[in-house]
Amino acid sequence: MIGIMVVSHEPLGTALIRCTRHVFGRLPPQLAALDVIPDEDPEAAIQAARDLLLRINDGSGAIVFTDCFGATPSRIAMTLAQPLRVYVVAGVNLPMLLKAITQRRRPVEEVVEELVATGKGAIRAMRPEDREAR
């Protein structure tokens, strides 16, 4: 099963993980967050990220989400990338994370592109007529 981690500015990763518990009624397995705090030593954060990745990756691969491309959390996340094993996806949002959790029994390389499309599709301007949409 694909391991999933969120590396982000504090407290976004933990908040997103908690949202999954709200949606699924329990905390999904092999899911972790690393909240990068201001002025944190990047080397210490990289080691913490590596330790978390080892804990959540059973050999099926992993997806590491990050919030802002180019920021410190994304640079930390990129140190974890491994071709065809550990993918890093920037711009995490809750729909992307939920999709990853529900698709994690598939091969990781197949899931990544769908996650990007899901994230983009979840961003929209809401109109008054959307109040009735479900």
Score class of each variant (00 low, 15 high):
residue 13 G to L: 05
residue 53 L to M: 11
residue 130 D to M: 12
residue 106 R to N: 11
residue 118 T to M: 11
residue 34 L to T: 04
residue 72 T to L: 13
residue 124 R to E: 11
residue 128 P to L: 14
residue 58 D to I: 01
residue 51 D to I: 11
residue 29 P to F: 01
residue 109 E to H: 15
residue 61 G to Q: 10
residue 44 A to S: 14
residue 108 V to Y: 09
residue 1 M to T: 10
residue 128 P to V: 10
residue 134 R to V: 10
residue 103 Q to D: 13
residue 39 D to I: 01
residue 110 E to P: 10
residue 94 L to N: 04
residue 130 D to T: 02
residue 16 L to Y: 11
residue 38 P to A: 09
residue 65 F to S: 05
residue 108 V to N: 10
residue 32 A to D: 09
residue 53 L to A: 12
residue 2 I to G: 00
residue 25 G to M: 07
residue 72 T to Q: 11
residue 54 L to V: 14
residue 40 E to I: 05
residue 59 G to F: 09
residue 84 L to S: 13
residue 110 E to I: 00
residue 96 M to E: 07
residue 55 R to F: 07
residue 119 G to Q: 09
residue 94 L to Q: 01
residue 76 I to R: 05
residue 50 R to H: 15
residue 121 G to F: 02
residue 77 A to G: 05
residue 4 I to W: 02
residue 87 Y to H: 14
residue 9 H to I: 06
residue 35 D to A: 09
residue 98 L to A: 06
residue 69 F to V: 05
residue 102 T to C: 06
residue 17 I to N: 04
residue 110 E to R: 13
residue 134 R to Q: 13
residue 10 E to Y: 11
residue 131 R to Y: 12
residue 68 C to R: 14
residue 93 N to S: 06
residue 68 C to P: 00
residue 23 V to I: 14
residue 41 D to F: 02
residue 32 A to L: 02
residue 48 A to L: 05
residue 17 I to L: 12
residue 132 E to D: 11
residue 6 V to S: 04
residue 25 G to L: 07
residue 91 G to L: 08
residue 1 M to A: 11
residue 46 I to K: 08
residue 71 A to K: 05
residue 105 R to V: 06
residue 79 T to R: 15
residue 65 F to K: 06
residue 2 I to H: 03
residue 87 Y to R: 08
residue 95 P to F: 05
residue 98 L to Q: 02
residue 33 A to H: 11
residue 51 D to V: 14
residue 17 I to Q: 08
residue 109 E to K: 14
residue 121 G to N: 12
residue 24 F to S: 11
residue 25 G to T: 02
residue 116 V to D: 00
residue 65 F to T: 03
residue 60 S to W: 07
residue 118 T to W: 00
residue 94 L to G: 02
residue 66 T to R: 10
residue 102 T to L: 14
residue 58 D to T: 14
residue 26 R to W: 04
residue 18 R to Q: 13
residue 44 A to Q: 13
residue 7 V to Y: 01
residue 44 A to V: 13
residue 88 V to G: 03
residue 91 G to M: 07
residue 88 V to M: 09
residue 103 Q to T: 09
residue 119 G to N: 08
residue 62 A to R: 07
residue 43 E to I: 07
residue 66 T to Y: 10
residue 118 T to I: 12
residue 110 E to V: 00
residue 63 I to W: 02
residue 41 D to N: 15
residue 89 V to I: 15
residue 115 L to C: 05
residue 21 R to H: 08
residue 1 M to S: 13
residue 82 Q to P: 00
residue 38 P to G: 07
residue 105 R to Q: 15
residue 60 S to M: 08
residue 134 R to E: 08
